[in-house]
């Protein structure tokens, strides 16, 4: 019921918004939200902050470019039905590998390891021409055709991204109610205790990273189709930091917080430049983000929930007087 309040407007928005708002604001927010969701999931349920989520999204994005139509003449074109699961599988494998490497790390050490992996992947994509086409990467990465149109058109891509976002949120909520998902949360709280139950801790950690790879990869594929390209800039410092910012300002209490964070971030990113001098728009973005983190330490979504709760209390009190 609660979800309908968000879902119905989300379904109707394409009929009132311009293509610019639909594509550049909403679709982009959904895509960034999906990738940030993969980080929120890890941070909330495994208790690990990973800086490698942009790389996981990048693995899937590069895979869909390498195995699909592109204009740089690199890669092996495969049918859609093969390349889509293959790209997601590769992102999951990459996630599992990162999980394996970082399996004993917590807190700042996990951040360092995943950051090192993310940065290494960034430089690798710049220097490798056989798989990643170096600095320029892949262009002309088109989504499949939709009748006589393309899935890349604003409305279809918006609905596709919305659908994927809903599926990802549902998957996260299902996963954390599963035995494996409970074990992941148990690793976060008391790994030694889990071991004393006879449950190994390495497997849940690797599974959580693989699962986050699946989500980040879904976002990565959409991102490649949205931009019609994937390059080293898709996996560099910029995206790494963006994803972290989105997760934090959205809030880590609930998976959907990532989408709240994404919308705020995208709107700031687009319109800050109109409000202030071209050279200083990053300052404005920084100040607003700082204000959000100070005013809403648990994220914007939690702040909104708290406000609604307070309003309801007041509303409940008024008739009694």
């Amino acid at each position: 019921m609660r979800y309908l309040i968000v879902l119905i407007p989300a379904l109707l928005l394409p009929f009132v918004l311009t293509d610019f708002w639909l594509a550049q604001v909403l679709t982009r927010s959904l895509i960034l939200g999906i990738i940030a969701l993969s980080l929120s999931f890890l941070a909330t349920y495994l208790g690990v902050v990973s800086f490698a989520q942009a790389s996981l999204a990048g693995v899937a994005g590069y895979a869909i470019a390498y195995f699909g139509p592109n204009t740089v003449g690199i890669g092996v074109p495969l049918p859609f039905i093969v390349k889509l699961p293959l790209a997601l599988l590769l992102a999951m494998i990459a996630g599992a590998l990162i999980g394996f490497v970082a399996r004993r790390s917590r807190g700042i050490y996990a951040i360092m390891i995943t950051l090192a992996i993310g940065v290494a992947f960034f430089y690798f994509t710049r220097q490798n021409y056989v798989l990643f086409n170096g600095f320029t990467g892949f262009s002309g990465v088109l989504p499949p055709a939709l009748g006589d149109r393309s899935w890349g058109d604003p409305r279809p891509l918006y609905y596709l991204s919305l659908g994927v976002a809903i599926i990802c949120v549902a998957m996260v909520q299902g996963f954390v109610r599963s035995p494996l998902g409970l074990a992941v949360q148990a690793v976060r709280d008391a790994p030694g205790r889990l071991l004393a139950l006879g449950i190994p801790t390495t497997f849940p950690i690797i599974a959580a990273f693989a699962f986050s790879g699946l989500i980040a990869g879904s976002g990565g594929i959409l991102n490649a189709w949205f931009q019609e390209r994937v390059s080293s800039f898709s996996v560099g410092f910029g995206p790494i930091i963006d994803i972290l910012i989105i997760s934090v300002i959205g809030g880590l209490r609930h998976p959907t917080g990532a989408f709240v964070g994404a919308i705020v971030y995208v709107i700031l990113d687009i319109f800050a430049i109109d409000l202030i001098d071209r050279d200083r728009f990053n300052l404005l973005i920084g100040i607003v983000l700082l204000a959000i983190v100070v005013a809403a330490p648990n994220g914007l979504q939690q702040l909104a929930i708290d406000w609604v709760g307070a309003l309801r209390k007041r509303a409940a009190k008024t008739p009694a007087n």
């Binding site: 709280d189 205790r193 449950i199």
Partner: peptide, 27 residues
């Protein structure tokens, strides 16, 4: 496990991680 409910904690103690791929499905 401070972040789990009593029910989930005891469930985890009972169920462990046996039963193959079904472990990824909600209980």
């Amino acid at each position: 496990f401070d972040g789990l409910s009593v029910h989930d904690t005891l469930f985890l103690a009972v169920a462990g991680l046996r039963g193959g791929w079904r472990q990824i499905l909600p209980v």
